[in-house]
Design a protein around this nucleic acid. Structure first.
Lengths: 102, 102
DNA sequence: TCCATAATTCTATATTAATGGAAGTATGGA
DNA sequence: TCCATACTTCCATTAATATAGAATTATGGA
């Protein structure tokens, strides 16, 4: 993954509301969520949510597809994996994080 | 790691110059680098670099310690690992990234 | 065709971040 | 104590982000 793509993705997640939206999408899984359902769940004005969804899309972290009157958003988990890989390889002395050790 | 800490760390890395600085620190390893050496390596005005180093420190990504007239900066790789863990656990359906598969 | 719903885009405003010169602070020598 | 070096903080300026009401676009019925 290119550095600039990683930066966009990091910036997209580095925002309170957007991180909430993305986490909600991840929890919703591959069936996705309509924009309205996200707005309801997080109690956000539609224009504000729309702005953040666009940021997530532009950063390659979310995909959307129309279904009737709704737009269904889904997370792109591959993008997160790309970030993880980049950080592991460039920002962590190549030391991978152990799976579930703490 | 708390959500707000993760957000600060992501925001700190989501900036071109800062990501360069951090990667340089990681490559330098535990012996660290003086601020002046970083400024030279990346050709940055000292005030600009100082601003970015402070951001990295505030985000918990870098530590610094005086040595004579110089301030030696070191990366805090544990912080990166915390980010990786958070993203893996909250933003990726719990699916860890495989070590060096692509 | 007309209306309600679902969402986006437009627009203005407010907040926050980045840049870098100039001034200030610590350190170590002569 | 005076000076040079190594940084940081102060400050002003510019640029980028976030917020949300109002207007607009697309879809699916009645």
């Amino acid at each position: 993954m290119e550095k600039q793509n990683v930066i966009s993705a990091l910036a997209a997640l580095a925002q309170d509301t957007r991180l909430d939206v993305f986490r909600l999408l991840v929890r919703a899984g591959p069936e996705g969520l309509a924009a309205g359902a996200i707005a309801d769940a997080l109690d956000l004005p539609s224009a504000t949510l729309s702005f953040h969804l666009k940021e997530l899309r532009n950063a390659g972290l979310a995909l959307c597809e129309r279904s009737g009157r709704s737009l269904i958003y889904r997370p792109d988990c591959a993008a997160v994996e790309d970030i993880l890989r980049y950080l592991t390889e460039h920002c962590c002395e190549g030391v991978a994080v152990k799976k579930t050790r703490r």
